[in-house]
Write a protein that binds this DNA or RNA. Structure first.
Lengths: 208, 208
DNA sequence: GCCGGCTTACCCCGAAAGAGGTAACCCCGT
DNA sequence: ACGGGGTTACCTCTTTCGGGGTAAGCCGGC
C-alpha cells in the first residue's frame, strides 16, 4: 500500500524540501502540490489524496480555513496541519474542524516521517510542544460555562432550544430578525458551537 | 377598546353576512376583507388586524396554509379558522401552526360572536363537534413514539441531534446530501416537527 | 404476479441561516 | 472626556434547509 499525499504550502522551497524527504519512503507518494488553499481545494477531486499536509501560514486563506473548507467538501482522508506558529486558538480550531494532527515545523525530518505514518494508521499527531495547549483545551472542553453570555444572548439561546426561527425570536423580543442573527452569531462564537442545532443541545444540557 | 378584524373567505356573500353580523357589535370593527389567502397576506401589514377570521375551503391556498404563512410573517394577533369541514388533519395542523381556534360554520350567529370575544380575550375557541377530534389528538400529543421511524430515519435523526449538517450526514452514511434531505423531510413529517432544531430536542428526550 | 414500503437520487424553488462588515446609541467605569 | 461592552440595525454574500415533485431499484407480503 502506498499512500497518496498532497502538499500545501505557499513556499515552493518548502514544498521541494518536504517532497524530497518524503519520497525517500517507498510507501509515501506525493501526488500533488498546492501553493495556496484554493489550489488545494481545486485539486482534491482529481488527486484523491490519502493525506493532506497543510501549512497554516498562507496568504488569503490560512491552513485552518482551508481545512474547514476541505471537510465541508466531504473529504474524509487525513489532514495534518504543519506550521511554525503555536497559536492556541489555531490548534483548538484545527481540532474542531477535524484535523488529524498539528505539527510544528521545527521538528526533525525523521520525526515528521514517523508522525505521518502514525496519522495514516489512524492515530493523532501532535507536536510535544503543543501538549500543554491541548491540555488547557481539554481542561475546559466547552468551558466558557455561559457566564460569558449576556442576558440577551441567553434569552435568544433558550428560544433557539425551543425550536424557534430567528424571525420568530425577533417577533417575540420585539427586535428585527437581523438583530437576532447578530445575537446568534455572537453566542455561537462565544460557546464555540457550529450552528443552532448544537446550540440547542448545549442549552438543554447547560441551561435550566 | 374596539378590535380590528380581517375576514378571509372566497365567497363574497359569506363575507357580507359575517360583516353585517359582526358590525352589530360596537367593539368589533371589520377593517378589511380578502377573497383568498394571498390577498390576506398582502393586506396584513396595512390593516394590522387584531383577529383574522379565516375560511379553510379556498381555492389555491387553503386556510391552514394561509395560517402557516401568516405566522411565518410574524403575525402575533389572533387567527381563527372558520369552515364547514371537520377534517381531523386540518384541525391538528391548524393547532400546530398557531391557530387560536377552529370553528364550524354551522354554528349560530350569536355563538360566533361569543367565541370571537373569547378568542380576543386570550381563550381558545373550538366547536363542540370537534372536541372528540381534539381529544384524540391530545391522547397522543407527540405520540408516534418513534416506532414510526425507519432505521435509516432514526440513524439520521441521531446525527441531527449531534449537530451535523445534511452534507456531513451524507458523507458519514455514504449517501448523497439530497437523499439525507429526503430522510429529514420524512422524519420531520412523521414526528410532526417543524425543523431540525426541534428534531434534535425531540431526539435528546425520546432517543437513548 | 402485483402492491406497498424503504431507500436511493434527482429536479426546482423559496426561505432560513450564518459569516462578514459598518454604525449608531446607551451606559458604566476610569 | 474617553474607552469599552451591550444592544440595536443595516448591508452583502454563500450555504443550508425544507417542501414539492418524479422515479428507479429492492424486498417482502398477499
Amino acid at each position: 500500500m502506498t499512500y497518496r499525499l498532497l502538499l500545501v504550502d505557499d513556499h515552493p522551497m518548502m514544498r521541494r524540501g518536504i517532497r524530497q524527504l518524503l519520497e525517500l519512503e517507498d510507501d509515501l507518494q506525493v501526488v500533488g502540490e498546492a501553493g495556496n488553499g484554493q489550489e488545494a481545494l481545486d485539486s482534491l477531486a482529481e488527486l484523491q489524496p490519502d493525506l493532506i499536509l497543510l501549512d497554516n501560514n498562507m496568504p488569503q486563506m490560512n491552513g485552518v480555513e482551508t481545512l474547514k473548507k476541505i471537510r465541508e467538501r466531504g473529504f474524509t482522508g487525513k489532514v495534518l496541519l504543519f506550521t511554525v506558529s503555536d497559536a492556541e486558538e489555531d490548534v483548538r480550531d484545527a481540532m474542531r474542524f477535524g484535523a488529524d494532527g498539528y505539527l510544528l515545523k521545527d521538528m526533525e525530518p525523521e520525526q515528521l516521517i514517523d508522525q505521518l505514518h502514525r496519522v495514516l494508521q489512524g492515530q493523532m499527531a501532535i507536536s510535544p510542544a503543543l501538549t500543554s495547549v491541548l491540555a488547557q483545551a481539554l481542561r475546559s472542553p466547552q468551558g466558557p460555562s455561559q457566564a460569558d453570555l449576556t442576558d440577551r444572548e441567553r434569552q435568544v439561546l433558550k428560544m433557539i432550544a425551543a425550536g424557534l426561527s430567528n424571525k420568530m425570536i425577533g417577533n417575540k423580543l420585539g427586535i428585527t430578525e437581523g438583530t437576532v442573527k447578530v445575537h446568534v452569531k455572537n453566542l455561537l462564537h462565544k460557546l464555540g458551537l457550529r450552528g443552532r442545532v448544537e446550540a440547542a443541545v448545549w442549552a438543554l444540557e447547560h441551561l435550566r
